[in-house]
């Protein structure tokens, strides 16, 4: 290091204040623990207004539980239980970003408890007396972990597959679909609305 001589060394306390990230191997987990029952209570108080008492999602707010066996359906429901590969992500994200609008206001014990409750709601643990802690955290695996694989692109044609067709590429062309939402200017009461969402 020290090429330019710019900046200063961070203090231990400074790094501790900001270094909150958690990894699948448990790196970054703080000391602490919490039970499903504790989690249920905290969740009802601080999370349910958006996510619903059982993580079912209020209005368009995110659904956090359920959706198992929907991933190859027409309308996949991607939740912690149905989709997320690692439990560490649940801890890390709730700890850094939730409750929405009051980020980083939860104690480690509270986050452990909420995470335990989310495991319970997602049928990953079935014992309602289950306590999640730094110690048993990495023993738990989410059901969909094995279903992620590395990006295999390019998965469509390249010039190596031949020059793209320039003329007479199809016999005939017909319109097969039209825009679902014709009025996109959000200026009237009667605006149409479409399906789907952005993430």
């Amino acid at each position: 290091g020290e090429k330019f001589g710019i900046g200063r060394e961070a203090t231990k306390d400074e790094v501790a204040a900001w270094d909150i990230d958690v990894r699948p191997d448990g790196t970054g987990l703080p000391d602490g623990s919490g039970t499903v029952a504790d989690g249920e209570e905290i969740f009802a108080e601080r999370c349910a207004v958006c996510h619903g008492d059982f993580g079912e999602g209020v209005d368009r707010w995110p659904v956090l539980a359920g959706g198992q066996d929907t991933l190859s359906s027409d309308r996949p429901v991607k939740t912690i239980g149905s989709y997320w590969p690692y439990l560490s992500t649940v801890y890390d994200y709730i700890n850094r970003a939730m409750p929405f609008g009051e980020a980083q206001s939860l104690t480690p014990d509270e986050v452990y408890a909420i995470t335990a409750y989310l495991l319970y709601m997602n049928d990953v643990v079935t014992d309602d007396e289950f306590e999640l802690s730094k110690e048993n955290f990495t023993d738990i695996h989410l059901p969909n972990e094995e279903n992620f694989f590395e990006d295999p692109r390019p998965d469509t044609a390249t010039l190596k597959d031949g020059e793209p067709c320039m003329s007479g590429c199809k016999e005939k062309v017909e319109i097969t679909m039209r825009a679902r939402v014709l009025d996109v200017t959000p200026d009237t009461e009667d605006d149409e609305s479409g399906a789907g969402s952005i993430d």
Binding site: A10, D13, E14, A17, W18, G101, Q104
Partner: peptide, 18 residues
Amino acid sequence: AAEGDPAILEKKDWNQYL
């Protein structure tokens, strides 16, 4: 109690609120 820059040690509104 912690040692360092308050800009790091103390939370800012923009770290917490929308």
